[in-house]
């Protein structure tokens, strides 16, 4: 077997173009489970562990997060906590420190697991992913990157290089609902971020991908409980829910209404 250890993004995309079958390995928390269980097999692997440019993070202006920046770093970074508290909270909500020490920004977006915490907050924050291949670089809003169950709009050979989160102009709230244990994945993941006069509410972990309804959000009257309730009910009724061992579809429909209402009241405080 071959474990490729490229050291630059150029190197990675070239190696990938020649071997589209070879999985990219970032923190390896998602792949590790699949590999251990025999669900993923490969003869060649491309590891990002030596690509130091992907571990860069900048926060002058917008927040630029390299694909290999870990959840733990986002959770603990003083600037992120102060200026992007919603982002820090959503990454901190993931599993245990053991997972957060390894799990990366690129990995959580590329695996597109419906039961994740960060995607709803990234979509609510208008985050944009930068994606590279031998054909060049393109930018895709995270909203258009995760398109369904474990599926993204990326091509086979593309690599997420970084994610840019605009500097917030208003408050942000992240609400994770756990139904089994403290370290469990979310049964519902609600993010609300205020942008000027409007709010972006995004609901994840209850369906195939995160959902945002701009027309519903535009009805928001900040601080008004009836308005928050109506928006919650509208979100609850529009989503097509999944049934899994974290909650039935009917349960999720109910809690989404409540969680959205609470997020809206909290973000207006």
């Amino acid at each position: 077997m071959t474990w490729h250890l490229p050291t630059s993004v150029d190197d990675v995309v070239r190696t990938r173009a020649e071997r589209p079958e070879a999985p990219i390995v970032a923190g390896g928390t998602f792949l590790g489970i699949l590999v251990r269980q025999g669900l993923v097999e490969a003869d060649e692997w491309i590891s990002l562990q030596r690509v130091t440019e992907l571990t860069r993070m900048h926060s002058a202006g917008d927040l630029s997060v390299g694909a290999m920046v870990t959840h733990r770093r986002l959770e603990l970074d003083d600037t992120v906590r102060t200026i992007w508290p919603g982002v820090a909270a959503a990454f901190k909500a993931v599993a245990s420190p053991r997972v957060r020490n390894r799990a990366t920004m690129g990995g959580v977006l590329a695996d597109a697991d419906y039961a994740s915490d960060p995607p709803s907050m990234l979509v609510a924050s208008n985050a944009v992913a930068e994606i590279a291949s031998v054909r060049g670089t393109r930018r895709v809003p995270v909203e258009d990157l995760i398109i369904g169950h474990y599926s993204t709009s990326m091509e086979e050979d593309e690599l997420i290089t970084r994610v840019v989160v605009p500097r917030p102009t208003g408050a942000a709230v992240y609400r994770k609902l756990r139904t089994r244990s403290q370290e469990d994945r979310p049964a519902s993941s609600v993010a609300a971020v205020v942008h000027g006069e409007t709010v972006r509410v995004v609901v994840g972990a209850v369906s195939d991908r995160p959902y945002h309804f701009a027309d519903v959000c535009s009805q928001w009257r900040p601080g008004d409980l009836d308005s928050a309730r109506e928006i919650g009910e509208e979100y609850a009724s529009r989503i097509d829910y999944i049934d899994d061992n974290r909650g039935s579809a009917a349960y999720r429909r109910h809690v989404v209404g409540v969680e959205v209402r609470r997020a809206l009241m909290a973000v207006a405080r």
Partner: peptide, 28 residues
Amino acid sequence: VGLCGTCTVLLDGEPVSGCILMAPLAQG
């Protein structure tokens, strides 16, 4: 599957789950 912590080891001082860490990731 990374949930219980009995396989914990420190990698550069940080705890990780050894049960789901592909061995080559520990190089260096």
